[in-house]
């Protein structure tokens, strides 16, 4: 999948699922939600991801009050991408889910779980928040950076340690190899560079 995204962003776009044929039902806080509640983003590992980024405050707990999604996971395109034996493992059926801080880039490789089709999976979580003091007590910076994903869609991202490290890695790779890595976000000033 990475190879396709890296060499042929257009092919990756074509293979990416559309909202209508991927998320068949959405409910949030007991009410219906739709396409407009999601942000589409391309990802080097997976062709397309949908982010539910609702900055709502919730006071009720339990499955009825959270986010409830139903996915259609059958393959709708008839292309056999396993042309190189099992080198391209993109024929598994399922979804990968990451629950993360709003407006941050999810780490779909290290901080996400895979959900199998055919099951009703429920996740409950508890959040512990550590707040750090701003200047002059600390050196935390609240600014946002403009980043692009492989579909060249610019998005405003809340900066965090993980994103900082990934941008740093991208700059290092670009400096060493003269091209960009598909798995790392691209800062604005490297927009005109090409993928490796």
């Amino acid at each position: 999948a990475q190879a396709i995204s890296q060499h042929s962003p257009k092919m990756a776009q074509y293979l990416a699922p559309k909202y209508e044929t991927f998320i068949v039902s959405c409910r949030f806080k007991g009410k219906k939600c739709n396409k407009t509640n999601f942000i589409k983003r391309m990802n080097g590992e997976y062709f397309k991801c949908f982010t539910f980024n609702n900055s709502a405050t919730i006071k009720n707990v339990g499955p009825r009050w959270g986010l409830s999604l139903t996915f259609y996971l059958d393959r709708i395109y008839g292309i056999d991408l396993n042309y190189d034996m099992d080198a391209m493992d993109i024929t598994e059926y399922g979804v990968k889910v990451s629950i993360h801080e709003p407006n941050t880039i999810p780490d779909m490789v290290n901080n996400a779980i895979t959900i199998s089709p055919g099951y009703n999976t429920k996740m409950a979580l508890r959040q512990t928040v550590f707040g750090k003091m701003e200047h002059p007590w600390g050196q935390c910076d609240k600014f946002r950076v403009k980043l692009v994903d492989i579909a060249y869609e610019a998005t405003n991202i809340a900066y965090n340690q993980d994103t900082c490290l990934k941008i740093c890695q991208q700059r290092y790779i670009q400096g060493k190899c003269g091209c960009l890595n598909i798995m790392r976000p691209v800062p604005n000033d490297l927009l005109n560079e090409t993928y490796c």
């Binding site: 062709f47 900055s55 405050t57 999604l69 709003p102």
Partner: peptide
């Protein structure tokens, strides 16, 4: 009261 997190889903 809690702020609802962002949820990202990707087709595998």
């Amino acid at each position: 009261y809690v702020d609802f997190p962002a949820v990202t889903v990707c087709r595998t």
